[in-house]
């Protein structure tokens, strides 16, 4: 019983900051502190009138979609190879691919920056994509590993015995079964990229991504309420994305007859 109370308190601790977002987003005062001053939707209205913000959102969306697609394609290759095949140097290769999971982001950011600048390449959205793919691939591999692992290899073999080619059996049998994992990986990678700040800050060049734009705004106290409104929308968007990812993942798990172990990791 004591443990249960503790767990609930812990959840409150986890959700406390997010719970404050909508409170201040609708608060009719420019100072982010209690007591509250009354209800307003002014901050949300202002969001629609900032061209720099719209540019940043568009930039972030393009980066997030590109990163998600590339990371998931690479993730499919890595997860399929790791679950299905034995090849020389497997442990080291997989270790390198998963390394960004424990590497501080600033290390990834500065090392890429150094190389790009030395090669004389211009910074821009594509350099952020390069970095984001790197940090999204480990998550993609983790999700897809469990999708591929639960797959019964004999299904594919049966298809090959029945005259399908290796590619067509992959497309017709394997792909549909791991599709929930793929969608889940796309959504998670998209969410990670959309929210990532440190790498974007170093590699973005002159066109800021949404978090980089937000970082700039946090310096101006009078702009904070608008940031709160934006934050509310962002949290809403990521909760929806994650809920969809979780729903798809669970349906996939049920379809392959896997015991639901829970969790996106």
């Amino acid at each position: 019983m004591g443990l249960r109370i503790y767990a609930v308190l812990y959840l409150i601790f986890l959700y406390a900051p997010i719970a404050l977002l909508p409170i201040f987003a609708f608060n009719d005062g420019t100072i982010i502190a209690f007591p509250l001053r009354g209800f307003t939707t002014e901050w949300f209205r202002q969001l629609t009138e900032i061209p720099a913000l719209h540019g940043a959102v568009l930039n972030s969306l393009i980066i997030a979609v590109s990163s998600a697609v590339i990371a998931t394609l690479l993730g499919i290759c890595a997860a399929r190879a790791a679950t299905r095949f034995v090849f020389p140097g497997k442990k080291g290769i997989m270790g390198l691919i998963m390394l960004p999971l424990v590497l501080p982001e600033i290390i990834v950011a500065v090392s890429l920056l150094v190389v790009l600048l030395q090669l004389g390449l211009p910074l821009g959205a594509w350099t952020v994509v390069l970095g984001h793919v790197l940090i999204c691939v480990p998550f993609s591999v983790a999700i897809l590993n469990s999708a591929f692992q639960s797959l019964d290899v004999s299904l594919e073999e049966a298809a090959i015995d029945l005259g399908e080619t290796r590619w067509s059996s992959f497309r017709l049998i394997t792909l549909p079964l791991v599709m929930p994992g793929i969608i889940s990986s796309l959504l998670i990678s998209f969410t990670i990229s959309l929210d990532e700040f440190i790498i974007a800050f170093f590699l973005t060049g002159t066109d800021p991504t949404l978090p980089v734009y937000l970082w700039g705004q946090l310096r101006f106290p009078q702009k904070i309420p608008v940031v709160m409104a934006l934050g509310t929308l962002l949290v809403l968007a990521s909760v929806i994305l994650l809920a969809v990812a979780e729903y798809v993942r669970r349906r996939g798990a049920a379809r392959t007859g896997q015991r639901d172990t829970g969790g996106l990791m």
Binding site: I18, L21, V239, G262
Partner: peptide, 19 residues
């Protein structure tokens, strides 16, 4: 269990800067 783990992971995915 899956529900609990999901609840625990959600705050982690929401805008880091703003948190």
């Amino acid at each position: 269990k899956a529900m609990w783990i999901f609840l625990i992971t959600i705050p982690f995915w929401t805008s880091y800067l703003i948190r």
